[in-house]
Amino acid sequence: MTRDFWLPHRIVMAALFAALVVWCVMTLRWDWLPDYLGLAAQGIWRTLWLLALSLLLGMTLAVPLGLAQAAGPLWLALPARSFCTVIRGTPLLLQLWLLYYGLGSLFPQIPWIRQSDLWPILRQAWPYGLLALTLSFAAYEGEVMRGAFRGVGKGQLEAAKSMGMPRLTILRRIWLPQALHRALPTLGGETVLQLKATPLVATITVVDIYAVASRVRQDTFITYEPLLLLAVVYMAITGLIVLAFRHFERRIPTRTA
């Protein structure tokens, strides 16, 4: 692979790119960087755990959503279908602002919520960001899971049923594992899309890495340097996600028919 990669024109391009990087480091202003390193590390950490938590919770919601659409009775399938359509048909930014400004202005008016133990958490911004990101991921992945559940061979389910396997065991042992296996190739791409959705939470005062870059811009009036660095950070995280999923997919055996 390395032989094929280092063609002559690529060596020239790599040299030009290295020159560009050196030029950026030498001529652009980076003196603000040491002051904001701690904040940036916190921001990256917050971006990463928002991503991880919303993926986990969203996936947990996506399985019943997909199952309800693929095999549920009408009174379950219809709400699941309309939930996916509504979330996928409106911008995430709008959902985020609806939750944050709408619920955020409603909750303080309800006395028992203000007196509950949850109030110190609900007063902050991140629960609303996490909720919006989770619902969005659940809707997109629920659509994937619907197809994945439908795609599992009918014969497999009939065989299990004819052996007298209880319905829950069929789901746990036969249906769900194969559906998850089918959904896996799309999961890497969906994860990258979810990462690209996280900076929206900066608009509701959650200090993720994007918000840190905006803060630098406001404090120092330096425009390009923080944004360029921000783009590099996101590209690095995307690269790590892609590599991780490639590694993950290689470890799971696939039948080649």
């Binding site: 990258v192 990462l195 900076p199 994007y210 944004l227 360029l228 921000l230 783009a231 996101y234 590209m235």
Partner: peptide, 10 residues
Amino acid sequence: AVPELVLILI
């Protein structure tokens, strides 16, 4: 690979 929000600003 880069969020649309960042690209829009840049």
